[in-house]
Design a protein around this nucleic acid. Structure first.
Lengths: 222, 222
DNA sequence: ACGTTTTGACAATCTATCTTGTCAGATACC
DNA sequence: GGTATCTGACAAGATAGATTGTCAAAACGT
């Protein structure tokens, strides 16, 4: 995979430093620069319009470093998506926890953070909402995973029903996430005409369907 | 655009017949064959994996006829989408009308037809649900139009609020359609694990949010 | 039957991008 | 300062698919 240029060095010995960083650190930095550049470029011309060359220029790197960190464009898209989603998910979880134990309160806190970030950072929002769809089966799988995480975050009760055969919980979960994302998509693409409070209220309305249905099913199964 | 080979004929005179059809009819038939072939091929390899050549082979036509009817692949995708959506929309409207005047009854009738068709025809379903996303701005616009039509069909009350500035009705509409489509997407991609009745019930739950909210707003504004 | 139109097969061109390779110059270590 | 490593710019090859063009054979009208 990568050149082992420390062949005759002790394993504890660091590789030659450049700019104060060893080989690994430099590689990691370049990887991150490429991810951030990709988010920028996707935000401007879309994933499909983004060439390797353009992303490398935005990252101030040359093509060789692209292939050092990613096998192909798709791998970078996935990395960029996971990067964006990872941050968002962590922040939403923190916001929910800060809101206490009431499911409704936690939901509203998470949604408020979600829409706030979408408004603050339109380009990552675009990657998260738009670019990720319809690229390939592999990318779709990554997306599905992420959406399941969000669903569990918003309405943990749904998670409990997951084991059931032919469960309708998965459909509830899909519907909820689909509603929220589609609302977000429209809000973002129309350049945020409504207040965050209004958007959250509407999105919460759809989440409440899943919340109450999941609750119902739990009571019934006890 | 097209060759005018009737230059010296009276305008009522038909072009030479082939297979009992005049030039226009043959062109229309080829166009339709291409659309149907495209739906087939998209259903197998996706829009992105579908080459002009493959679609022409499936249609038993050669490339020249592709460019006779469509400027490029995107134009064919749009035509195929509109073809699929047109049928579906008409059928849903008929089902709703057959169900009478009660909004809830009409909603369930339309949804039942929707999910029934998705199960009967997986390949058009794929075009309608999946392939249409994330191709280009032009395609997205076509999709948005179609979704608005569906929203108006399911909950006409939303339509009434359309005029309002910064209206939240558009978001309600988006959320509802997003929920239904995402539910459909999952149901289709998991090969229909739940009964149609269950899926309709869950989808209707999300639509009811839009239904009651739209009703609320109407009362308030009277 | 004859000439014209239409068709089908396929070659040729064109374009765009990915991907790999080369090489001179810069940078760090000793 | 000398040497090994790393970097940036860019060329070159490879690939894939869209789009246009050619031509002979088939289908039609008269």
């Amino acid at each position: 995979m990568h050149h082992v240029n420390t062949l005759f060095m002790g394993s504890s010995r660091k590789a030659r430093l450049y700019g104060g960083m060893d080989a690994e650190e430099r590689r990691a930095e370049r990887r991150l620069k490429l991810i951030n550049a990709a988010v920028e470029v996707y935000g401007e011309v879309g994933y499909r319009g983004a060439t390797v060359k353009a992303i490398c220029e935005a990252a101030e790197l040359t093509e060789r470093y692209f292939y050092e960190s990613f096998a192909n464009s798709e791998a970078l898209l996935i990395a960029a998506y996971n990067h964006v989603v990872g941050h968002l998910h962590d922040e939403m979880a923190a916001a929910a926890n800060a809101a206490g134990h009431d499911a409704e309160q936690r939901l509203r806190a998470a949604l408020t953070l979600y829409f706030t970030r979408l408004k603050q950072h339109p380009k990552p929002a675009r990657v998260f909402l738009l670019e990720i769809s319809g690229i390939s089966a592999a990318v779709d799988a990554v997306k599905l995973d992420a959406l399941r995480d969000f669903s569990d975050l918003l309405v943990p009760a749904i998670d409990a029903k997951r084991g059931d055969r032919n469960s309708t919980a998965a459909l509830l979960s899909s519907g909820m996430v689909g509603a929220v994302i589609t609302i977000a998509l429209r809000w973002v693409s129309k350049q945020y005409p409504q207040t965050i409070e209004d958007v959250v209220a509407i999105a919460a309305g759809f989440c409440r369907v899943a919340l109450t249905e999941a609750g119902k099913n739990r009571l019934r199964s006890v």
